[in-house]
Amino acid sequence: MTTTLTTVPLRRPGLRRLRLLGQGPLFAVSVAVLVLLVLVAACAPLLAPYDPEALDLGASLVGTSGDHLLGTDQSGRDILSRLLHGARTGLLGPLLVVGVSTLLGTLLGVVAAWRGGWADAVLSRAMDLVFSIPGLMLAILLVAVTGPGMTAPVVAMAVAYTPYVGRLVRGIARQEKARPYIEAYVVQGWSGWTVCVRHLLPNIVPTVFAQSAMNFGYALMDLAALSFLGFGVQPPTADWGAMINEGQGAVLQGAMLPALAPSVCIVLAVVAFGIVGEGLADRIARREK
């Protein structure tokens, strides 16, 4: 019997370049979308041609025109203006959710990883417990207690997202803690606190940041869903999720834009955050190699 040895190149440079090319522009476009989104949210009052809450029942469901670039909704409010203002609530909610859950999750994850033993067991089980409660259900429960508005959904989502971050951080912090450079700091006589804050944290922050970018997109979608269901941002405040809800009736009357325009905005934002998060994670993985 003869055996033929076929050499399979582990990494073909041509393919690799193609892959990078395939990823490069998409990543760049997504970053551009996110920058634009932030700028729009910041400058909404300057950009919006109309007051987003000004009713004009005489101009109900006007199609696209020079006066109203994206038309109006059933109450005659300018859709473009509402979209621009909607970007503010659309970003502020996830920002709070991601900010709180990232801080809390990082703290819990690092403490669990560093202390190990019973502290790790208690914190990990607590995170599993929260993990098992669906975030949307928690939000609806909290809204039932405190009444609708932004606060309850944001608090509930921050709690629900914390174990995601906590588990990730615990995993990478344990990995990092086992690396000899961290052990070298311990042997040098630094306190555990100093080693964690000054040396372990900075080395895991990029990975956490990449995960947070993805979480931002998910939180945006969850909060929009809650607003759509009427638990979150209340009318007449401009919010993408609430706008879809309000636009449902118009769809039956043949007007797609009042519901479609905010839907497209949500999809664009969520996809852009996802691609940026994945791209950052990829970059970190490549750099570690």
Binding site: R179, P180, Y181, A184, Y185, V187, Q188, G189
Partner: peptide, 20 residues
């Protein structure tokens, strides 16, 4: 005081220095 008494050099020089 203990750190000043005993120090250690680790096996893998690629992992024993802080990359930053």
């Amino acid at each position: 005081a203990r750190a000043r008494a005993v120090q250690m050099v680790f096996q893998d020089p690629y992992l024993s220095l802080d990359p930053r």
